[in-house]
Nucleic acid binder design. Structure first.
Lengths: 213, 213
DNA sequence: TTGCGAACCGACCGGTCGGTCAGTATTATG
DNA sequence: CATAATACTGACCGACCGGTCGGTTCGCAA
């Protein structure tokens, strides 16, 4: 059942998978026909169905690949030196850079989030986000124990906010470009620096002392 | 050319438009057939094409309607009393509440953002977001002039961050629900309070004094 | 050499899609 | 009433979709 020779047969499978990932990420599931995938992979459509029993299976495989690539790419992140504070900064910077460098996989995953098909949320949460999310939560917890961040802040919430700001920037770049006065739309570095700065300040120091509410 | 009587003809047109908006928001452009729209509007498919010359026109009209509803609904926001600080809080709270109350229109618009088809970003920016965005920028500027927010903060950037946190929460609710320790996924009020708190703290007070970088 | 399964292909199928058309019902106006 | 414009319909079209089928080629093992 498993392919005998990795050169010829595995080659086609990989070409199909690569083409499918690229096309799905670029145009979305519904705008990509199996014929298009076949042509892009320089293979007959029937052969695509020989290796993947349905369009859905092909899509799931492409998703899974993108997820794994995304996860393993981020795995080496923020294991460097420095205090927890600096490591958070680094983590966020690298996370945004990763999304912008791997627009293909990121778009594919993001599409799945917005599409909101039943069960997808849970699967994505478990297979893609959980690890990085938990690592960031842990980092933030360390920060709190070191006293760099206020203790009454929910690390889970703060982690959400940090990652959310990145995701939002990534997905809204095109809209941001056309809003008045947005000069950082094409400068992810500046954006990242600014938002980490604001969020970190907000997470620092003593108890709340803001007036009202 | 314009319809003579608003009761009979306008009725069908409105029914079509309503059905289309609902269906497009729920299932996305590609998963909604003109037949389905026609059935939902209790009208023949040919009649849909009589009033809307193509599926694209119907979609654009539905989008435009959703945009206008969204804009006008938020227009009355944050014109209340209180200092600029409180008005920002109110603005953000109402913005999130609005999205959660009008999931139909919000999803439709969000879909368009992620879909990323050429020209859509600019159109959305101008027709949907510009007004609210600029109003928030203005509010923040006021806050700065009142001394409640530090002056070296880019109001455009801060506005982006505030709205982005809302949008991210709205779109990621389903994923958040399945991440460990996320207890605020179904409590938008608590989420809003927390994130406004963090962001406001981060935007308060004097010049930057954080170590490193 | 033969046999066999996997890789591969062209042709095809049922079904759905967006869109059209010829014709009918309805309504306002002269 | 006649008439003209509009609202509306069922039947239909060509294109394309995901998926199948019969058959051919290829590589390896007996």
């Amino acid at each position: 059942m498993s392919p005998r020779n990795e050169e010829s047969s595995g080659d086609a499978v990989n070409r199909i998978l690569e083409a499918a990932t690229e096309l799905f990420a670029q145009h979305g599931f519904d705008h990509v026909s199996m014929n298009t995938v076949a042509e892009a992979a320089r293979v007959s459509k029937a052969n695509v169905f020989h290796h993947f029993k349905s369009k859905d299976e092909l899509y799931v495989r492409a998703m899974r690949q993108a997820c794994e690539a995304s996860r393993s790419s981020l795995e080496v992140m923020a294991n460097g030196e420095g205090d927890a504070w600096q490591r958070i900064r680094l983590f966020i910077d690298e996370h945004l850079a990763h999304m912008l460098d791997n627009t293909r996989d990121s778009r594919l995953i993001l599409r799945e989030v917005v599409e909101n098909r039943p069960g997808a949320g849970q699967r994505l949460a478990q297979e893609v986000f959980r690890d990085n999310f938990n690592r960031l939560v842990e980092l933030i917890g360390q920060c709190q124990r070191e006293g760099a961040l206020r203790a009454d802040l929910d690390p889970v919430f703060f982690s959400t906010l940090l990652l959310g700001a990145n995701v939002f920037f990534f997905q809204s770049q095109e809209v941001l470009r056309h809003l008045d006065g947005v000069e950082f739309a094409d400068e992810p570095g500046r954006y990242g620096a600014m938002f980490v700065d604001v969020l970190m300040r907000g997470a620092m120091g003593g108890p709340a002392d803001n007036e009202g509410m």
